[in-house]
Design a protein around this nucleic acid. Structure first.
Length: 483
RNA sequence: CGGGAUGUAGCGCAGCCUGGUAGCGCACCUGAAUGGGGUUCAGGGGGUCGCGAGUUCGAAUCUCGCCAUCCCGACCA
């Protein structure tokens, strides 16, 4: 990355030098988030929040289209309630923040700040569900949650974060399983088509399962530094929570029985995933579908440009807005065009339209792509069409590039020595046969830092011996060092 | 939570060792000229030196405690 053009951005640490510093520089310089006085609690700045709003819109539409509705549940959970489901408590206890006082008075019972809402929602479902006719219940909530983390990083792992959590209840085990996988499928389709982030969907191992779940599924993405990011989870909770909270209904067979529940979520962590999937040494690269501004128009300020160039630029802006493009006209007089080019590149705007006196003469504009930096002249009267098709092309190109990257970094071996070497060198996914035993998984983790990300559906049938212990393999597992 | 590092203007840093009341670059403000890849000149504004104690006539500087951030581990739905 010694190209002359790359030298313009000097305030971001190159990825190759220190990926972690690069990430933090991008978050800060692109004004996505900022630190606050409390450890792990970041402020999401307007530009970062605009990305989250686009993510919300896209997901919300998909949830609604599959019959889900939104609701809101409280932030506090009484301690006694949290204790109801044994595995759940055990899993979350170390990460729960507690409220002990109301004003100056000590509370009779401590209140947990929700780390997730299964228990509070479970108690309500117990009230709301009486009959099989009340099922399924398909509710989603957009909210914040708090998990006391020891190591925090903006977006990737924060003490407080924003997310959506879906909670559903069903009549049969099969329906609950169907729901669990339907959502996982939505997550995958969303990640790939909107975030241009290829993900591997599959089942979590027993030890990586959600506390209290029967089965956990995830989508896993590969970041630019070769580490995996869990980008979303969907849990089949079986009847575990229904039993703990008394979610019962009278069935078609007149028998009183426990409901089958699921829960699923994605969080602001996805923004971190987008940054680390597409970003480069000049900063952020946003897929058009989650770019708050898909196009920035930079008028070339020459001579009395405010009277000659600016009206034309405004005209193009209006036409693009009418065509449904999120566009911004950068008419600031205090910056030169070159400065603006670098600034918007750092912020990841997918397309830049330049218009100057020469373009007006020739009835054209210049369009530059953020991902490839290619520039092209396009006729003025074809701006809407060309911009829209270019936005599509960029969206596709980002997914294709990220997919290629993942393929290059995904290897397959049944040999433990080779496995270890790969995890040390340039990491990535390694697909290996595994025996299904937790002790073996733990040994691999302590020796190589690699964990089982998930076991994809429709993969190869397990065959041969476990790469670590030699016992018969029960699954082909995708291993990686994870965030 | 363990080991290491850092905290001085919005950002990056110097000053600290050897105590004497804060400086540089960029950014910011004003004006003019510029303007097709971070423009130039001139003038100007901005700092509880992370927070709190202590030592001292005097603390950014020395001592102690706390907080935050970063890196490496442990832990992590």
């Amino acid at each position: 990355m010694t190209d002359k053009k790359d030298a313009f951005v000097t305030e971001i640490t190159p990825q190759s030098q220190d990926f972690s510093s690069w990430y933090l520089d991008v978050v800060r310089k692109a004004e996505l988030a900022d630190y606050t006085a409390v450890k792990g609690c970041m402020a999401i700045r307007p530009y970062g929040f605009a990305i989250w709003e686009l993510i919300q819109q896209e997901l919300d539409r998909r949830f609604k289209a599959t019959g889900h509705v939104n609701a809101y549940f409280p932030l506090f959970i009484p301690e006694s309630l949290l204790m109801r489901e044994a595995e759940h408590v055990e899993g979350f206890a170390p990460q729960v923040a507690w409220v002990t006082h109301g004003g100056n008075e000590k509370l009779e019972e401590r209140l947990a700040i929700r780390p997730t809402s299964e228990v509070i929602i479970g108690t309500l479902y117990a009230k709301w569900i009486q009959s099989w006719r009340d099922l399924p219940v398909l509710i989603n909530q957009w909210s914040n949650v708090v998990r006391w983390e020891k190591v925090t990083r903006p977006f990737l792992r924060t003490t407080e974060f924003l997310w959506q959590e879906g909670h559903t209840a069903h009549e049969t085990e099969a329906e609950a399983q169907e729901e669990t996988l339907r959502i996982l499928d939505i997550y995958k389709e969303f990640a790939e088509s909107v975030l241009a982030m290829p993900v591997m969907a599959g089942a979590k191992s027993e030890s990586e399962k959600f506390a209290g779940a029967s089965r956990t599924y995830s989508i896993e993405a590969l970041m630019g530094d070769g580490r995996a990011l869990q980008a979303g989870t969907s849990h089949n909770l079986g009847q575990n929570f229904a039993r703990a909270f008394g979610i019962q209904f009278q069935g078609r067979d007149k028998v009183l029985q426990h409901a089958w529940t699921t829960s699923w979520g994605v969080s602001t962590r996805l923004i971190g995933g987008v940054i680390m999937t597409h970003g480069d040494d000049s900063g952020l690269v946003l897929p058009p579908r989650v770019a708050p501004q898909q196009v920035v128009i930079v008028p070339i300020s020459r001579g009395n440009w405010q009277e000659t160039v600016l009206p034309k630029a405004r005209d193009i802006q209006a036409r693009l807005v009418a065509a449904g493009v999120r566009v911004r006209l950068d008419d600031r007089d205090s910056y030169t065009p070159g400065w603006k080019f670098a600034d918007w590149e750092m912020r990841g705007v997918p397309l830049r339209v330049e218009i100057g006196p020469k373009d007006i003469e020739k009835q054209q504009v210049v369009v530059a792509r953020r991902d490839t930096r290619e520039k092209a002249f396009i006729p003025m009267d074809a701006v809407e069409d060309r911009v829209r098709s270019l936005l599509d092309e960029v969206q596709q190109a980002l997914l294709a590039r990220a997919t290629k990257f993942r393929e290059e970094r995904t290897r397959r071996t049944a040999d433990y020595a080779e496995f270890s070497a790969w995890m040390e060198g340039r990491p990535g996914f390694v697909i290996s046969p595994w025996c299904g035993h937790a002790d073996c998984e733990a040994a691999i983790k302590s020796e190589t830092q690699a964990t089982i990300r998930n076991m994809p559906f429709g993969g190869d049938e397990p065959s041969g011996a476990c790469l670590k212990c030699g016992r018969p393999a029960t699954a082909q597992a995708w291993f990686a060092k994870a965030y």
